[in-house]
C-alpha cells in the first residue's frame, strides 16, 4: 500500500494530454538517419520505387521509430500542453530522485506512418510505483506512460508504453558503513 506521498503521485494516473502534432512531418531524411544507424535493409523505408508498388503505396517510416516523431526540440523549448507525467516528475525531482533511466518499453504497431504526413500523439500516465524500490543505482520510483500515435485522418498508427525510473543516486554518504 502506498503512503500519502505515493497517493499524491498516483492521483495523476489516467491523465492524458491534448493531441500534440509532431514538429516535423514524416520525412525521408529522418527515416534515413534511423535506417543508417540501425542498418535496416527494408526497402519500404529506403527504395521509393519498391515502396510505391508495395502494399504501403509509398515510402513509410519504421514502426519502431514512432517515438522519434515526439521528441522535443533542442532549442528553443517548445510550449506543450501539460504532460501528465510532469507533476509526478517535478515532485520526485524535488524529493531528490534526480536521475532518470529508461527501463522498459513496448510498442504495438497498427500501421506505418507515410512520408509527407504529420504524426499526432497523445501521452497518458498509466502507472507510478506505489512504493520506493531499492535498485542497483539507488532508491527509485518507476513511472509508466503510454503514447498513442495517429495519422492525419485520425487513424491509429500505434501505441507505445514507456517506463522510466527516477532514482536518488547512491553516494558514499548513503552507503551502509562497513561492519
Amino acid at each position: 500500500m502506498g503512503t500519502l506521498y505515493e497517493d499524491r503521485l498516483r492521483q495523476h494516473i489516467g491523465n492524458e494530454s491534448e493531441p500534440i502534432e509532431a514538429v516535423d512531418a514524416v520525412c525521408p531524411q529522418m527515416i534515413r538517419h534511423w535506417v543508417e544507424i540501425m542498418e535496416d535493409r527494408n526497402p519500404a523505408y529506403s527504395d521509393p520505387e519498391w515502396a510505391g508498388t508495395s502494399r504501403h503505396g509509398g515510402l513509410v517510416a519504421p514502426g519502431s521509430m514512432m517515438q522519434v516523431w515526439s521528441m522535443a526540440p533542442h532549442w528553443p523549448e517548445r510550449p506543450l500542453p501539460d504532460l501528465p507525467f510532469a507533476p509526478v516528475d517535478e515532485a520526485l525531482e524535488e524529493a531528490g530522485y534526480t536521475e532518470i533511466v529508461a527501463t522498459e518499453q513496448s510498442q504495438t504497431i497498427t500501421a506505418l506512418a507515410k512520408v509527407g504526413e504529420p504524426v499526432t500523439f497523445t501521452v497518458r500516465l498509466t502507472d507510478v510505483s506505489d512504493s520506493e524500490h531499492k535498485t542497483r543505482l539507488g532508491e527509485a520510483y518507476f513511472v509508466t506512460f503510454e503514447y498513442r500515435f495517429s495519422d492525419p485522418r485520425g487513424d491509429l498508427l500505434g501505441t507505445q508504453s514507456f517506463t522510466y525510473m527516477r532514482y536518488r543516486p547512491q553516494t558514499e554518504d548513503t552507503e551502509e558503513p562497513a561492519a
Partner: peptide, 12 residues
C-alpha cells in the same frame, strides 16, 4: 519486407 513488425516489447 513482406512481413510487418506488429509488436515489440523489451526490458533493459
Amino acid at each position: 519486407p513482406d512481413w510487418d513488425l506488429s509488436s515489440i516489447s523489451l526490458r533493459l
